[in-house]
Simulated assay, not measured.
Amino acid sequence: MSIVKKRLFWPSLILVVMLGINVFTSNQFLTIQDGHLFGTLIDILRGSAPLVLVSVGMTLVIATGGIDLSVGAVMAISGAVACLLIQDLGNQNSVASVLLIIGIAIAVALVLGLWNGTLVAVVGIQPIIATLILMVAGRGLAQLVTDGQIINVQSGPYSTLASGFFLSLPVAFLIAVAAVVLTILLTRRTALGLLLESVGGSPTASRLAGISARRITVMVYVVAGGFAGLAGLIYSADIKSADSISAGNLIELDAILAVVIGGTALIGGRFSIIGTVLGAVIIQTLRITVVALDIPDKANLLFKAVVVVALCLSQSPEFRAKVFGRFKRRPAVEKVAA
């Protein structure tokens, strides 16, 4: 197969082009300061971490034929719970206490994912409706936790999640990498990936084959909730506060978009974790590139839509065949002697 026809070739090419633009438009694309890597590239990697986490969880859910619209609300709830508990600490710089609070916040997110999975797999509610319930109610729950206020924290260990460095790389980026690697190992080095695709491709056939589709469905929603909760912690650690209104606002749409760019089928079945990560990084790079090109704020969403449409069309074999097929040289028709 030609490399041009590979599913991730065009997204990769567009990402390279946007990174190239940033090389020439940014003052510091990649530099070293105080032993750490800094620059536009590091900003892209660090900024894409929450979206990568949410998108990977979304990929697993979509692979089973579902959808999760509540990831943004789960982000808001986890950040609100963490900041509320940290604010009540006598010493906000206590590493052990902050780690315990992080664990509690992630546990809350896992419970919320379990709620979604139960509604979908056990009660039988359509995924889009089941997660829409938490999308609406969860945002209100986050505001109840914070009493409608923005809770500010000054915790060094907590802010490390977003602004810290380890081995010269951002901690947020390393957390996202660890989550991606673990997901790939579990889905591609074990039978789990095949089970996910079986449940998403044909739930009835998988059930007849003895696969516990209900258990797998609940599991992917729990994982998606956990990843969204972790993303919410990174977001709140970045702004050093819990903003229940802005945290994770509309991130579910970007996550679905990243999944589509990565080549995962929205009807379930085939999925690509690497493709999803590529899609999430493209979305974050696009945001920074738009700023670097001094494109007006009013045109940002339009510019983003144009790039996304171009990406989706470039991945369509039918579109490529219709467009590029016209430019292929047609064989000369031999004249038949009368």
Rank of each mutant, 00 (worst) to 15 (best):
V277E: 02
G193S: 12
A209L: 13
I150F: 13
G200Y: 12
L185F: 15
G164K: 07
T160Q: 09
D254A: 08
G47L: 00
R207V: 13
C312Q: 08
V291R: 09
Q28M: 09
A76E: 00
A224S: 14
A231C: 03
G226M: 01
L195Y: 14
L15H: 10
S316V: 02
A338T: 06
I216T: 10
A237T: 10
Q143T: 11
G148W: 11
R188L: 13
M1C: 09
A337L: 04
I283N: 06
A109M: 09
E318S: 12
T276L: 04
L278S: 07
T204G: 12
K6N: 09
S78G: 05
I261F: 03
L233I: 09
P127N: 06
G210P: 05
A224I: 13
G201L: 15
L41R: 02
G47V: 00
A105S: 14
F324E: 10
T289D: 06
A172C: 07
G156Y: 13
G164V: 11
V145W: 03
I101F: 01
S168W: 15
A255R: 00
N93R: 05
S241M: 07
G269Y: 06
G248Q: 10
V17K: 03
D43L: 11
V81K: 05
P50V: 02
S272D: 06
G20V: 04
L112Q: 04
T289W: 01
M75H: 09
T187N: 05
M219Q: 11
Q284T: 13
L13F: 12
Y221S: 05
A80G: 00
S94A: 05
V218L: 08
Q126Y: 02
A247I: 03
L301D: 14
T289A: 15
R215I: 12
D238A: 12
V223A: 06
I3S: 07
A338R: 06
L132C: 13
S272I: 10
L286R: 03
L185W: 14
T40M: 03
F38C: 08
N116W: 01
A205V: 12
L195D: 11
D88A: 13
L302T: 15
L19N: 05
H36T: 10
I106Q: 00
T285P: 01
I129A: 05
A109W: 01
L110D: 07
T160F: 14
T146L: 08
V145S: 14
P317E: 03
A337V: 10
G117L: 04
V277T: 12
